[in-house]
Design a protein around this nucleic acid. Structure first.
Lengths: 134, 134
DNA sequence: TGAAATTTAAACACTTTTCCTTAACCACCT
DNA sequence: AGGTGGTTAAGGAAAAGTGTTTAAATTTCA
């Protein structure tokens, strides 16, 4: 079968894009319309999202949704929330406060800005008290 | 649009599988043949691989094209080529010869037949000397 | 070895994706 | 207004993916 989700065309566009080229410039290079470059790029980003969601599903296979860390939340308040939610469902979180915060930032650095949660972060927990973020 | 890569059918099978059911048992539950359950499960796992590969590709975006391993090339000659090309652009490859060959074969088993490169393989390198193949 | 579980292959109808074009539209910026 | 960069809509043709079945082959393991 195919390897990744992205077609050659999609990868090509993403690479040029990464270099900072405009859609118009890329269109000239690969001999097509800028509208087409836009569509290809959009499809590529969509495929990347789908890849992310797919792997996220794997966690939910043995984990359960615990709570959502909403955008704007102070990172230091996250553990408290997570502990209390875990207690509600009768599970014990595997990590202490410090470790939890580090794990939170390490697994998804883009999602945080300083001490603040930038975008919503979904928190999952499994039987063992392992946490996953998506 | 669609969300993950996995179809409802595929998720259904994976969930039952996670619970420990056999393909036969699942076939009865979802009213189809066990062969079909097998195919669906296989497709699901394949899709999961593709999702992983897709996200892997994102790393290559920070990387730069180093060289092409042309079809027919002896796998054992690849490291030499890669090292010399890396030197030209002032980067140091992170892997020794053995590791490099293994990585080459592991990341894309379909591309090799014994010691020979079957199709062209593009080699990318990033600032850290990490190599990616596409 | 024998039975159960799993995998594979070929074929088919059906749906979805992809790439492409043309043409229009939006948001800036000077 | 005009230019630049980006997006959207409609439509079409080719390619790829999905769910199925049937039948045969393989693996697993008590």
């Amino acid at each position: 079968m195919k390897q990744g989700l992205l077609t050659d065309r999609q990868k090509e566009v993403l690479r040029y894009r990464k270099k900072g080229l405009t859609q118009q410039q890329i269109a000239e290079i690969i001999h097509t319309s800028k509208a087409n470059v836009c569509t290809i790029e959009k499809a590529a980003l969509e495929n990347i999202s789908r890849a992310r969601e797919t792997l996220e599903f794997l966690y939910t296979l043995d984990a359960v949704h615990l709570c959502t860390l909403q955008g704007g939340l102070d990172l230091l308040k996250a553990p408290e929330l997570i502990y209390s939610e875990a207690e509600k469902v009768g599970l014990k979180v595997k990590y202490d406060t410090i470790t939890l915060i580090n794990r939170l930032r390490d697994t998804n650095p883009d999602r945080f800005r300083g001490r603040q949660v930038r975008e919503d972060v979904e928190v999952y927990i499994n039987e063992d008290g392992d946490l996953y973020f998506g």
